[in-house]
Each structure stands twice: as structure tokens, then as C-alpha cells.
Simulated assay, not measured.
Amino acid sequence: MANSFPIVALTSGGPHAWIMINALQERFGAFPVIVEEGESSEVLWKRRRKMLGPLKVASMQAARLPIKLTKRGTHGIIEGIVAREELRPEPADGTEIHNVPSVNSDICRHLLAKFSPRAVFVVSTRMIGKKTLNSVDAPFINYHSGINPAYRGMFGGYFALANGEPENFGATVHLIDEGVDTGEILYQSKVEVAPEDNFHTYLWRMAAGSRDIVIKAMDDALNGKLAPTKVNLPSRQWFAPTLGGYVWTGLRRGVW
């Protein structure tokens, strides 16, 4: 007989994903983690060119150079956040990891059915299709680094600061539907940034200040107490900074 677990996680990996998964395992005990292969940059940029047009995407790609230059000196800041907040950005010893090509693959759906979780925690994956969402009778709950619905998509914390809205620097835990971060909202965190923070530290700062809402949401799911809330903000999906936007925002607002 297949083992049944209260929680299963879906992720493509990365330090911020493991911070959340480790916090959940510390609270609820060990559970399997299904790790998908990340999309290639070629596929990602091709999709963006189709959506946004070649000129805008070329500017986004050009912005990677100044963004890379601002990385200098951030290693110590990140080390400080990890130490102070006791973050664990690597898989814990003994974690049961199953590698799959995609969260939308047959093998992923087979594993979900095998584990029969009561709740599925999702962090840092590609969009999950209807077939996978319907493969188990359990809510799929996503951790998103941004305040929905105003900062759906990518780099929500950066764009909130770039728009002069530090009050919207934070994260959202929400139910997953077939849209891009459009599912019903469960909890949100509002996190303060430090003067030394930049593009490379925002996700770490956000993860450190958002583990509690992830634990609350999963606890609600396991106890049948999920209670989505309404957030009165305009809805917009963000992608990546353009070259002009990144440099201008850095000079004008000091947001790098």
C-alpha cells in the first residue's frame, strides 16, 4: 500500500524554496518533495518575446548586466540574514526528494496520487496545468514573492519598491488556479527592507519574514480551515526590469 502524507511539496528548488520547505518540515514533520527541472532560459525568453515583443524583451535581457554589477558586496548581507533568521536554504538531511521533468508530467501526477496528500505546497515552479491540479483531492497552495494581485508574476518586491510602494513589499500565500498568481489569497506578509538591500537580497529578506504565513496556511489546509480573503488592489503581472527602467529607478529612488 502506498504511503499517505499530509503534505507534499512541488518545487524547482533554490534557496528560497528550501527555506519554506524546511520551515514546514520543522513544524509538520518530514514529507516528500517533488523537484521539477527548471525551464531553460531559451524557452523562457522565447515565451516572453511572444507575449511582450522583441524590443522590450531585448531591454530586459540588457538589464541583466547592471543587475549583475550590483551583486558585488551582497554576499555578506545575505549571510547576515541567514544567520540572524536561522534560515536553512539547502535540503535538510534525509529529505525524500523525487526528481521529475515537470510538475505537469505524468510521473509527477503519479507521485502525487501515490502520496495522496491532504495539501500540496508549491514554491518556485512553472505554471501548473489543470490535469495536475485535478490529480489529487487536495488544495494546491503557493508561496509567491510579491503582494497579489498588484504584484503577480516575477520580482514583486523589487517592483513594489521601484513604484514607490514599500508598503507592498511582501509575500502572498494563495490557492492555485490556472492563472498566473490569480488564485484566492490566504495570507500576506508585509516586510521591511534595509538600506543596504538590493535586487539580490530582496528575496532573502522576504523569505525570512514570510515563513509564518506559509505555516499558517498549511495548518489551515490540514485542519479544514482555509479562509480566502479579498485584497483591494489593482491586478497586474510583472516580468523583469528593462534596462532603462532599472537604471532610472536606481538613480531616482535608490532602488537597485
Rank of each mutant, 00 (worst) to 15 (best):
G38K: 15
I185Y: 00
D219E: 12
T172M: 06
T70N: 15
K130D: 15
M206A: 08
K68P: 00
M51I: 03
H75M: 13
T172C: 02
A221T: 03
L161P: 07
P195D: 15
D220W: 04
I176Y: 02
P91A: 05
F239C: 11
V120L: 04
N198H: 03
P117Y: 02
D93G: 07
I213M: 12
F5N: 04
N142Q: 05
N223E: 13
A62K: 15
M206P: 13
R27S: 10
V193P: 02
P241D: 05
F5G: 02
L161M: 09
F169H: 00
I176G: 05
A221M: 02
R211D: 04
A240N: 09
L111Y: 06
G29H: 14
T229Y: 05
A17V: 10
A240R: 10
E178Q: 11
N232E: 13
E86P: 05
A221P: 14
R126D: 08
E178H: 11
R49N: 07
I21Y: 05
R27M: 05
I185D: 00
G209L: 11
S41I: 09
S105F: 10
F159Y: 08
G244I: 13
R72I: 14
T182S: 13
N134A: 14
P149Y: 11
N198T: 03
T242Y: 15
K50Y: 07
T229K: 14
V191G: 14
V173I: 03
A194L: 10
P117M: 02
I185H: 01
L55E: 12
L111H: 00
S116E: 08
P6Y: 13
T249S: 12
A62G: 13
P54D: 14
H144D: 01
L133D: 04
A240H: 09
H174Q: 10
M206L: 13
R126W: 10
G53I: 07
R252C: 06
G76W: 14
A207T: 05
I67E: 03
K68V: 13
G157I: 04
N163K: 13
I77P: 03
V180P: 03
L10D: 00
F199S: 00
I19H: 01
